[in-house]
């Protein structure tokens, strides 16, 4: 059973969002997603200062078997990227909600997050996948 922290927002395409104290957000892929992908060997990080619309492709995560796009869960600007993933892409496997974060986004409008799923609804979706 994969882990789904209560305090995060989720997308149907398996990204998570955490609101930080300064109203910026951290974005990553869920524990369920990393299980499905298997051992990650490469993460293509978004460029700094990239402006994103909600749903834009922002990153690619690649395992030995497959590669998947990561979509931005919110509109905004990339203000920080997790460069450690270039050296250790498997941080996403080990700690998807912590050291495996992908980037920090300054959102245009935090209210956009209301359209996302809460932990219960996300769990419901992934249980229906099986």
């Amino acid at each position: 059973m994969s882990d789904t922290p209560r305090d995060l927002h989720y997308t149907e395409s398996h990204e998570w969002v955490r609101i930080e104290n300064d109203d910026t957000v951290l974005v990553g892929v869920t524990d369920h997603a990393q299980h499905q992908l298997g051992d990650l060997v490469f993460v293509e990080l978004p460029d700094m200062h990239l402006t994103l619309e909600k749903g834009d492709e922002m990153s690619v995560v690649e395992s030995v078997k497959t590669a998947a796009d990561v979509y931005s869960p919110i509109s905004g600007t990339v203000i920080e990227i997790n460069n450690q993933l270039s050296e250790q892409p498997d941080l996403i496997n080990q700690d998807p909600y912590g050291r495996g974060w992908i980037c920090r986004i300054k959102p245009d409008n935090l209210e956009e997050l209301d359209e996302l799923l809460d932990a219960d609804n996300y769990e419901k979706i992934i249980s229906e996948e099986h």
């Binding site: 690649e62 395992s63 078997k65 590669a67």
Partner: peptide
């Protein structure tokens, strides 16, 4: 092979 057509399809 993750870059290739049989896995990445249109991408």
């Amino acid at each position: 092979q993750a870059r290739e057509q049989h896995i990445r399809r249109a991408k």
